[in-house]
């Protein structure tokens, strides 16, 4: 599993209210919601993002509400992966549960610039900034979590156990 694309760069403490504003949460239709992904901090994101592109952000990405709609809209926009210095815990859990690839790597998140071409290998955790030629290694997931991801999300992994 891997992804390659252009980088959209965001600051520290990106909250779930700017990822998907609550004013749209009278719907749970992922495609409809995804039209508003990042709207309040980057209104152009949905027009520019292409399949496989990568979000790179600072500390505490996805803080705030528990709304699973947040990782869901990022995934529905076909974002290949989110790299951050750290993730808020509910967002982290939700991303794993719904199968949005996320990687914690403070060094990569600090150095990679907006617009860079980046490739990510999820098996090894290696992040390559093709523009600068620099590579980084993200923290691997614990085996327990790796298993949920491999099974395609939490509910599929539970169903298999039954």
């Amino acid at each position: 599993m891997n992804t390659q694309g252009k980088v959209f760069k965001y600051p520290d403490n990106v909250d779930t209210d700017v990822i998907i504003p609550a004013r749209y949460l009278n719907s749970s239709d992922a495609k409809e919601l995804a039209q508003h992904c990042m709207e309040d901090i980057d209104a152009d994101f949905v027009n520019k993002v292409k399949a496989g592109d990568v979000m790179v952000a600072g500390w505490n990405f996805g803080c705030g509400s528990s709304r699973e709609h947040a990782p869901l809209v990022i995934k529905t926009c076909e974002t290949g992966c989110v790299i951050a210095k750290s993730f808020a815990r509910i967002f982290y859990r939700n991303a794993i549960n719904i199968g949005l690839p996320i990687l914690e790597c403070p060094e990569a998140a600090e150095e990679i610039s907006a617009g860079d071409e980046v490739s990510v290998d999820f098996t090894t955790g290696v992040i390559t900034d093709i523009t600068t030629g620099k590579t980084y290694k993200a923290q691997p997931f614990p085996e327990f979590i790796q298993n949920i991801i491999e099974k395609g999300g939490l509910l599929k992994s539970l169903k298999e156990k039954e």
Binding site: S66, R67, E68, I90, R93, N97, I98, L154, L155
Partner: peptide
């Protein structure tokens, strides 16, 4: 603690 909807679904089921 707060969780997402998929955790809620899993919690309701199991």
């Amino acid at each position: 603690t707060g969780v997402g909807s998929t955790d809620m679904a899993a919690g309701m089921a199991t």
